[in-house]
Simulated scan of single mutants.
Amino acid sequence: MEFIVYLAGEIHSNWRDQIKQEVSSKQLPFHFVGPMENHDLSDSIGENILGKQPNSIIKDDMASGINNFRTSVLMNKADIVIALFGKEYKQWNTAMDASTAISLNKPLIIIRPEQLHHPLKELSNKANVTVENVEQALAVLSYLVE
Rank of each mutant, 00 (worst) to 15 (best):
Ser99Arg: 10
Asp43Cys: 11
Leu108Asp: 02
Val5Glu: 00
His118Cys: 06
Ala137Thr: 15
His117Pro: 00
Trp15Ala: 10
Gly51Met: 13
Glu146Lys: 11
Asn38Lys: 15
Asp79Val: 10
Phe30Ala: 04
Val81Met: 03
Met36Trp: 06
Lys77Asn: 08
Ala137Glu: 11
Val33Thr: 14
Pro35Asn: 14
Ala63Pro: 00
Leu104Ala: 08
Val23Asn: 06
Asn68Leu: 13
Asn93Arg: 10
Asp60Phe: 03
Asn133Trp: 14
Ile102Ser: 01
Met1Leu: 07
Ile49Pro: 05
Ile102Gln: 01
Trp92Thr: 08
Trp92Cys: 03
Leu116Ala: 03
Ser13Ala: 07
Arg16Trp: 01
Asn128Tyr: 09
Met36Ser: 13
Leu50Asp: 05
Glu132Lys: 15
Trp92Met: 07
Ala63Thr: 05
Glu135His: 15
Pro54Leu: 09
Leu123Thr: 08
Leu123Ser: 07
Trp15Arg: 08
Asp60Ile: 02
Lys126Gly: 02
His31Ile: 13
Ser99Gln: 08
Thr130Leu: 09
Asn105Pro: 02
Asp61Met: 05
Ala101Tyr: 08
Lys52Trp: 07
Pro119Tyr: 07
Glu146Ile: 02
Gly46Ser: 04
Pro113Lys: 05
Leu84Gly: 03
Tyr143Pro: 00
Asn105Gly: 12
Gln27Thr: 11
Ile19Val: 15
Asp79Gln: 09
Glu2Asp: 05
Phe85Glu: 10
Ala98Ser: 07
Glu22Phe: 13
Leu123Arg: 04
Ile109Cys: 01
Met75Gly: 08
Thr94Tyr: 04
Leu108Ile: 06
Lys20Tyr: 04
Thr130Phe: 07
Ser103Arg: 14
Asp79His: 14
Ile102Val: 12
Thr94Asn: 04
Leu28Arg: 06
His39Leu: 14
Gln27Arg: 12
Phe85Tyr: 13
Val33Arg: 07
Phe3Thr: 00
Ala127Ile: 13
Asp17Gly: 09
Ile82Asp: 02
Val134Leu: 13
Gln91Trp: 07
Ile49Gln: 04
His39Ala: 14
Glu37Ser: 15
Ala98Lys: 07
Ala8Val: 03
Gln21Ile: 11
Ile102Gly: 02
Lys52Ala: 14
Lys77Pro: 00
Val131Leu: 13
Ser64Met: 04
Leu144Gly: 03
Tyr6Glu: 01
